[in-house]
């Protein structure tokens, strides 16, 4: 992975690109969620990331860590569904791991996201294979060791790998066998987050 230094502006662009991707795909996210969840994932994520963009544009935080910490806090308070605390924890914990450096390397971001993903697993009590966000996030962080593009590809592939899985967490788990055959909405939005990261790094 190249030694590019990533500054606060890069992270603001990431959040903006993620919000745009979620906007574009909101209908699909809600559709996936109506199959096995409560049909609010698209609108919840849209509301959350719109609030994040509004905040980082109004008062751009000074460091990469501060951008992600503030974004995470905003998601916890504005999403309204389980994705709020989960994505909020992901970004906040990653932001905290980045500390207050003005710039971070891609390697530092990989390590930070690793800590964020661990915190998500702990919060939800889930592991890869449970048909959750982690099925996209864990391979994405591993892919970051190679490149942003590899991470985005791994996240997308991870999201698709949830189709044949049996849901073990959340409302979808009540469906048992009937959860099989549907792509997990949380894994799908996680893939969008990494697609947006690759997009701004191009």
């Amino acid at each position: 992975m190249s030694g590019t230094a990533l500054d606060a502006a890069f992270f603001v662009r990431w959040m903006t690109a993620a919000a745009a991707a979620i906007d574009r795909e909101a209908e699909r996210l809600t559709e996936l969620d109506s199959a096995i969840g409560d049909a609010d994932h698209g609108t919840n994520m849209q509301r959350g990331f719109a609030a994040v963009v509004k905040m980082v544009e109004a008062e751009p935080p000074a460091t990469p860590g501060a951008v992600l910490t503030a974004a995470g806090r905003q998601l916890i308070s504005s999403v309204g569904g389980a994705s709020g605390p989960l994505y909020g924890t992901l970004l906040r914990r990653t932001g905290k791991a980045l500390g207050d450096a003005a710039q971070v390397s891609a390697e530092e971001l990989r390590a930070g996201l690793g800590a964020g993903v661990d915190a998500v697993g702990k919060l939800g009590g889930s592991a890869p294979g449970d048909k959750t966000m982690l099925d996209a996030l864990v391979p994405a962080v591993a892919g970051l060791a190679t490149s942003f593009e590899a991470a985005a590809g791994a996240a997308e592939e991870g999201a698709r790998s949830t189709v044949p899985m049996l849901a073990k967490k959340g409302r979808a788990s009540y469906l048992g066998e009937r959860s099989i055959g549907h792509q997990d909405p949380g894994a799908t939005s996680s893939a969008l987050l990494f697609a947006a990261l690759a997009e701004v790094a191009r």
Binding site: I76, G80, A82, G84, P85, L86, G88, R171
Partner: peptide, 14 residues
Amino acid sequence: LGSAVLTVKALLAE
């Protein structure tokens, strides 16, 4: 259930 549990846990963790 669901987001009620996760939101309180996330708030406490912070």
